[in-house]
Structure formats: C-alpha cells, structure tokens
Amino acid sequence: MNALLESILDAHGGLQRWKEAQTIHAEGSIGGMLWSLRGQEGILATADATVDVQEQRLVFDGFTGPGLRGLYTPDRVAIERRDGDVVVERRAPRAAFEGQGPETPWDELHALYFAGYAVWNYLTTPYLLTRPGVVVEEVEPWLEADEDWRRLRVTFPQTLTTHATEQVFYYNAAGLLRRHDYAADVLGSTPAAHFSEQHVRASGLVFPTHRFVVPIEEDGHAAPEPVLITIDWADISVA
C-alpha cells in the first residue's frame, strides 16, 4: 500500500476498523448555490443519510417528504415509501445527465443520484481509496494558507461511481483530509475544490463535519465564491 495512504487511513481510524464498519448514518444539511441553479433549492436542507460502507448504496430518509425515502445505487435511483412501495424510479441514472448545460433544470431523481453517489464517496473516504482497481500516487505537495498539504492523485476504475476518473486529495500534517479536487462529469467537468473541516471521531472513525465546494481558478487556487455546495453534519454514527 502507498505509504501516505497508509498513514491517512491510520489518522481516520485504521484500515481494520473501516473493514469492520457496515453502515454510516449522518444527519445534517446539504445546501449551496448548485441546488437553486438546478431548480432543487432546499431538497436536502434536512439530510438524513445512511451509507452502506462495503457497497455503493445510500438511503436518504424523508427525501422529498415525510414517509418517503430516496434510494441510491449506481444503476438505479428511486423514491419509495418506507414499506418499499416505489413512487418513482430511474434505471441507468447517469445517462439522464447527458446533454445537460450548466443550468439545465434537474428533477428530484437527478438530485438524488448526484447527492447519493457524492455523499457515499465522501463518507467512505479514505477507505474508498483502498477498493479494487483504485490507483493512488503521491504527487508534489501544495502550500495552502502557510500549511504544506501532501497530495494523492487518484485514478478510479469504471466499476466505482464517482465524480471523475482522476481526482486529487490533499492531507494536512495530521493526515486529515482538507481539500479534494475534481471535475464532476455530470456537472460538465468544471474543476472544483472541495474543502473539509471540523473533523470528529465516531465509533473509532474520523469524519469532517463541515464541507464546502468552490470553483478552481486557473492557477490552481480556490476561488472564494460562489459556494456551490455546503455539507454540515450535526451527528454521525457508525454501525
């Protein structure tokens, strides 16, 4: 295993603890300009997410209304009643983004797919980087606000649903994730910097509880605005 990735895993609870984890439950709020641009403002203002750690599956309880839930898997998204009765679903959901422009309106299933795979990725990182077919390489460090952050360039296989094939993760001296760069395919591949702060420990694993995403300028530095996405978790637990 890459030496930097090994130290990062240790800082986030250790590989063995991640292998033992079955679900992560996070409650909070997801906002930012993106949702209003896509006609879905407030859809996740109250977010209640349960992630399966060992496979790509996520459920948003209360998605779009009381008694409903949003189910994400790579090949299907659905809004269901809690008894499993399907209200609406979409197969091959990534294909539904083809041909969209930067302000093309989304329906609720577009929002569910994007938020579903993104939150699954975020909550399972750095364990995500150990999955079969993922290639990691340490690249030159980055100076951010007088801190030297070590960086991993990560290449993802087609078997994992994520923002883009190549992404870069930045870690501070304590081995904690501070920044994550990507150009999300479903958003037109515009480069973005995703910052992570306010880390907490839950059942032995470590998670950032405040995240925000902004555009990247031509010199590689993050623009101060607009804030495209915010994620704030008030509670995280692991089972």
Rank of each mutant, 00 (worst) to 15 (best):
V53E: 03
Q54C: 07
I30T: 04
G28Y: 00
Y72R: 06
V134N: 01
T46D: 06
V200A: 13
T46S: 13
E147W: 08
R211Q: 05
S36G: 08
I30V: 12
G188A: 07
H194P: 01
S203P: 06
D232P: 04
L71T: 12
V135A: 11
E103H: 07
L205W: 08
P132V: 00
L37S: 08
A222Q: 09
I8N: 01
L68D: 06
V51M: 00
T162E: 01
L44K: 05
D232G: 03
T64W: 07
Y127A: 15
E27Y: 01
T159W: 00
D235R: 08
E217I: 08
E20F: 05
R178H: 14
P208I: 02
T73M: 03
E98S: 10
G84A: 09
S29F: 02
P93M: 08
M33G: 12
R94V: 06
W120H: 07
A173D: 15
R91Q: 07
E27Q: 10
E217V: 10
L68M: 14
G70P: 00
A183L: 10
T209N: 02
D52R: 04
A118S: 12
E197R: 13
Y170S: 12
V139T: 15
E138V: 04
I30Q: 05
D219K: 05
V206M: 06
Q54H: 05
V88T: 14
G175E: 06
D85H: 11
I24D: 02
F97N: 11
A47R: 12
F207E: 02
D185W: 02
I216T: 10
H210R: 14
E166V: 15
H210I: 02
T159Q: 03
Q16G: 09
H110Y: 11
V135D: 12
D146R: 13
L5I: 03
D52K: 01
L71I: 10
H194R: 06
E218G: 04
R178G: 15
L187C: 05
V238F: 04
E41S: 10
Q100Y: 14
N121P: 01
H199C: 10
T130K: 03
W142C: 14
S7V: 02
R69V: 13
V168E: 06
H199T: 05
T104H: 12
E89Q: 07
A145D: 10
V139I: 07
I231H: 09
V87T: 11
Y182Q: 13
A96H: 09
R178L: 13
E89G: 14
W120E: 00
G101Q: 04
H194Y: 13
H199P: 07
I229T: 13
D10Q: 14
H110E: 11
R90P: 04
